[in-house]
Amino acid sequence: MQTQQSRNIIVTENLGKSVKTSNGTLHILSDINLLVTFGESIAIAGESGSGKSTLISLLAGLDTPTAGSISLNGKSLTSMDEDGRAAMRNQLVGFVFQSFQLLQGLTALENVMLPLELRGDKTAKSAAVALLERVGLSERLTHTPRQLSGGEQQRVALARAFVSKPAILFADEPTGNLDSKTGAKIIELLFELNLENNATLILVTHDQTLANRCQRIIRLDAGRMV
């Protein structure tokens, strides 16, 4: 049992999220029971409004559930306070978003250095340069997001996600803002990096082809796993 538990990086039990509205309680997610093992890749699919983004934000500790529990790498996220979850995110988790979410004020290099800097890592710069070279942006280190194309911005986001060597990578529609050709390149890069880092991948997508590249697909409908 101990061995089985230690292989699981994400465990949720009866996870739920509801909000109170003027028309009563709205259940966004209900009874999500999920076991994710180390190195596994999972796609979360579903229609708009099915609760995909809510699930990913709960799993990553960006939001708190109203029911059930989550544990990440054996530690209960639900019993942590906000600062505890922040520390957990910094140590364990990487993110890639549909809208890239780069800090507009910082250069590509500074954006990638950020997670390591927040950790107090002295090697932040060299690690960030190496990773930007790996994603093919060695010529773009001092460019700010505004000076980069969408594809380039998403590469910077990938570099930032992997620079801290996360155990889990959460990707929310990573190609949603890109044309299909650029999107395909980004996905290749994402899977390559994921493999190199031996990270667990949780990918939210509408794209069936992309979902099929993952080892497992979880479908959500009206906040429930189907």
Binding site: E82, D83, A86, A87, R89, Q101, L103, L118, R119
Partner: peptide, 16 residues
């Protein structure tokens, strides 16, 4: 607000 959300997402604590 967005930049702060990113920083928080990357593990920056509230007081930081």
């Amino acid at each position: 607000l967005d930049a702060t959300a990113i920083l928080r997402c990357l593990g920056c604590k509230q007081r930081d």
